[in-house]
Amino acid sequence: MDNDNAEHPSPTRPKWRKVAYGGMQPGFDDNHTGESFLEDMVMNANVVKRDMLKVMQDSVSISEYLCIVALVGLVWTYTLRSNLNETSLLYLDVSLLGSGFLVLLLTEEMLSLNLLLHYFLNISFFTTGLFVLAPIYQTLTRSISSDSISAVTVSLLVLHLFLHDYAGSTVRAPGALKNPTLTSFISLNASIVASVFMASRLPSRLHVFAIMLFSLQVFLFAPLVTYCIKKYSFRLHLCFSFSLMAVTLAFVYTLHGLLFVLLLGLLVFVTVVCPYCLIRLQEYKFEINGPWDEAKLCFDITD
């Protein structure tokens, strides 16, 4: 046993080396544990210390998006209850499109006639396509009961919220480095299917067209617009988010008391409780690194 040897160190005995070659090292058993054992181990090397305020500020983007989806849900409900007619919906579409464009132009500073023309062409193609397809959407789920459709729509929206990429935007912002992930695409598709299902319960063709245009605008471009605002100025992002939250809460309050409480609870949970839990759990973080880790490549692999 190496323990016996350690008690009588002789000057002639060769030192133990951390090598695998040369057979068994004289004077040492194969289960010898040298002093260098685990000395290359690094603990918690990459742990980021987070502070509460920063995490709360970051969580605002989640609350903001929750509110956006809640607003979409509100518009859907009002339309289904015929509180909103097709003309006002169309006005809403146009104003949303206009304001979204304005935000992009102001924050991105990429004003050029060519680009504007390009966007204009794309949008007109898109709207025409949607208009042509509207009758199909309208009769899509006629044979299915409204209850099933609303249940599926709600579950799709929940799926959408779960998988949504809150840090970036699925529609790639100009200059964004990372490609969107698979889950963010699934999330986007879930939201679009939800809009189609919802639109299919509406009475007229124009209704369907207007509501589809509205939903697609929001689900496709709202993340992009909020992302641009956030990149432009964080303060503006916070102001925008809080006003959006206030507006949403007010509208939901007029609609239903319990829903209001639920939404408020959700927002508090996301902005206060979750960050607090995260900070608390940070203490238990235990990361081990060492020579056994797979080496990371220091360059991007471009396939």
Binding site: N31, T33, F37, D40, M41
Partner: peptide, 19 residues
């Protein structure tokens, strides 16, 4: 030896049991 360190860490085995 690197593999030994790794195994000891992963399994919680006493190092003198690992050859």
């Amino acid at each position: 030896h690197t593999s030994k360190e790794n195994t000891v860490l992963r399994s919680g085995l006493p190092p003198e049991k690992v050859f």
